[in-house]
Simulated scan of single mutants.
Amino acid sequence: MSTLSTTHEEIALGAPDGKPVSNLRDLIDTHLHMPFPFRHNPHEAEAAAGVEAWLDEWGLMAEPGVPAMIARTRPAELASYTSPALDLGLLQIVAHQIAYQFVFDDRAESVGRCSPAALVPMLCESVAILRDGRRPGTPLGAALADLYRQVRERSTPAQAARWAWKSCEYVHGLLYEAVAQAQPLLLRTRDCLSIRSLTAGVEPFYPLYEAAQPREPAAAEVHHPVVRRLSRLSADAAVWTADLFSAVKEQRAGELINVALAHQRERGCSLQTAVLLAVQEINSTIEEFEELYALIAPELSPAGLGCVEGMIGWIRGCYDWSRTVPRYADAALVPVLP
């Protein structure tokens, strides 16, 4: 991994072997450490059809902008890349959840940009459904309640409880994001990264990989400090990698909660340099994940190993999805030199 200056633009914006690269996407591909192989789920096409039918069932496809957004984000493709080993039933739940979070996140961004306070009723409805089992009062709430039902049907009570808890963390993160967007001058890089860990919405998927195992992982494995650290590292690596490719889109939209844009604000550097600084952070995160996994793997059961494989799926899957999804296509249009 090359060393980058954090105070000057003294960076060789090319491949480590000296060969030039032409655009931001190629720059990311060249410098990012990605040791895990590409995989995809053979049920992707069925999951894609199921996503549209499910969103339509709850009235979300009829909302302005949602069909176009789904076409540009391809939630079933992300589900396929991150969850290559799941059966069709669990893959469909993952795809539904990804689609739901895309709709929910875009709605929260739109409402929260006007006023963080205006976002509170929407978030409170979600927390009431997840925490207290309250009846929904909106189409978005009804979709969430149905998603929670699907999770409970395929999970143990403990797994479903972990799913709901992590989903509540994601909901709370969107309020923090709205507050930060309203006060951009007060946002520090470490605060941005903390908020991003919540709004990533990755860790709610991990109990589904527990449910996918032939035997339930032991509680001692699920709550082992090293496994919990692996969960945090994988979620951060996954969403920070997506941030690399989404930085152009989010910069143009005035978004703040993005690891590359956080480095750009802090260093006062070009976007290209900021992306490479973020790549360094991601590479260190993935390397720590590899080291800890090698240490803990001999102690884990096959079910425990299967859960960690689910975490690896998100690291690799977010990379493959982000670099080709239409939503982030602008990364291939930005030249390497600022």
Rank of each mutant, 00 (worst) to 15 (best):
T199Y: 12
L277A: 05
P338A: 04
F102M: 01
W163R: 05
A200K: 06
A48D: 15
S301L: 15
K249T: 08
M1F: 03
C307M: 15
G141T: 05
E9N: 12
P338T: 00
V279N: 07
Y170G: 01
W165Q: 10
A95N: 15
A15T: 12
L78H: 10
R316H: 12
D87W: 01
T189D: 00
A99C: 08
L305Q: 15
P42Y: 04
T189Q: 13
D320I: 10
K19E: 09
A182C: 04
S231G: 12
V227S: 04
A329Y: 03
T73Y: 00
L91T: 03
A274T: 01
E177D: 11
N258R: 05
C318G: 15
G310E: 14
I312D: 05
S270I: 02
R135D: 14
D87C: 05
P207L: 07
L208E: 01
H31A: 10
E109P: 08
E203P: 09
I195A: 04
G268C: 13
V94F: 02
A182V: 07
R74S: 09
D146P: 04
L32M: 08
C168T: 09
G112Q: 05
V21C: 03
L230Y: 09
G14W: 00
L32T: 04
G65I: 07
S231N: 11
P37F: 02
G141D: 10
A178P: 11
E210F: 02
D105I: 07
G268Q: 12
Q97I: 05
E46F: 12
Q150C: 11
P84C: 08
L144V: 06
Y100M: 03
M69Y: 05
Q150G: 03
A76F: 01
A235I: 06
A237M: 11
N283Q: 05
L147E: 09
T156N: 01
T324V: 14
